[in-house]
Simulated assay, not measured.
Amino acid sequence: MTTHLRTTKAPLVTAHAKHLVAETGVLTNPYFRTLVDGSMSLESFRTSQEQLGFAVTYFARPMAALVSRIEHPADRIGILGNVVEEHGGFRPQEFHHETFRRFLASIGSDTAQLNGLKMMPAVHAYNSVLSAVCTWEDPQVGIGCMGAIEYAFASVSAITGNAIVNRGWVAQADLMHYGLHSEIDEQHAEDFFLLLEPHYRNPAARRRIDQGLGLGAYALNRLYSDLSELGRSQQN
């Protein structure tokens, strides 16, 4: 399965993001192969998704740091809108933190115990990478990194949602978090890529942008590889 935007005003950046996501192998990660082929158990999936919840809750924070580093107000709007959307359009019950917890409840997690759950080092490392690149590196690197993650996550959400519905773990009508992200993350990626496209023919800028895109694809793939290891340890 490949990620693509239906239409894009950032064709150069989008094309390279697509290439890097494919090259990195995010969408063919063992996590998704075992989820789709039926060898991942519901218990393993649940445990890994509980850990993923730490990344879901954290994701808006590096984006907010990145917004503060963008010089021109008009250039902040798309990413700022993404930050607001992560917070449910200011509706607390629609915060992504909350929609993901409702998803976890739908697959059998005891949400009352989640506040005491310990974050595994792999998720901590992923969150720290996003924070560092958005806070300290050139903004074009941070924008590329976050855009690549959003770009890939649209397909990640579709793969995950389809698999768990096909396996009978969740009804199509109850997908909640993954149903939403399979639809909106393409536009979120576009919001990032539009900031980069005007600079992509400049060799120095292109190096920074490509570095960010590659880091985003790598970080997401590494996260799911580690979640796959967690799942296997649960089954052994």
Rank of each mutant, 00 (worst) to 15 (best):
A10E: 03
P11M: 00
L12P: 00
T14E: 15
T14N: 13
A17M: 09
A17S: 15
A17H: 14
K18W: 09
H19Q: 15
H19S: 15
L20N: 08
L20F: 11
V21Y: 04
A22V: 11
A22Q: 15
A22M: 13
E23Q: 14
T24H: 05
G25R: 13
G25F: 12
V26A: 02
V26T: 14
L27P: 02
L27A: 04
L27G: 05
T28I: 12
N29Y: 06
N29E: 08
P30E: 11
Y31C: 00
Y31R: 07
Y31D: 04
F32W: 14
F32H: 08
R33W: 04
T34I: 00
L35I: 02
L35Q: 05
V36P: 02
D37P: 11
D37W: 06
D37E: 07
G38A: 07
S39M: 06
S39E: 08
M40E: 01
S41V: 11
S41Y: 11
S41Q: 07
L42P: 02
L42H: 14
E43M: 09
E43T: 14
E43G: 12
E43A: 14
S44C: 04
S44F: 01
F45K: 06
F45T: 10
F45Q: 08
R46Y: 04
S48A: 15
S48D: 05
Q49P: 01
Q49G: 02
E50G: 04
Q51F: 13
Q51P: 12
Q51A: 07
Q51V: 11
Q51R: 10
L52E: 12
L52K: 09
L52Q: 10
G53N: 15
G53C: 05
G53K: 07
F54W: 09
V56R: 01
V56N: 03
V56G: 08
T57A: 13
Y58G: 07
F59L: 08
P62M: 01
A65P: 00
A65W: 06
L66M: 12
L66S: 00
L66K: 04
L66P: 03
L66A: 08
L66W: 08
S68V: 03
R69L: 01
R69H: 05
E71F: 11
H72R: 14
P73Q: 07
P73T: 03
D75N: 15
R76E: 10
R76N: 08
R76Y: 08
R76A: 14
I77M: 09
G78M: 09
G78S: 12
I79R: 11
I79A: 14
L80M: 15
L80H: 09
G81K: 15
G81M: 10
G81E: 14
N82P: 05
N82V: 12
V83M: 11
V83A: 07
V84S: 00
V84R: 02
E86N: 03
E86W: 03
H87L: 10
H87S: 06
G88A: 11
G88F: 03
G89C: 02
G89D: 04
G89Y: 10
G89L: 02
R91I: 11
P92D: 06
P92H: 02
H97K: 05
H97N: 07
H97L: 10
H97F: 13
E98R: 09
E98M: 13
T99I: 13
F100E: 02
R101S: 05
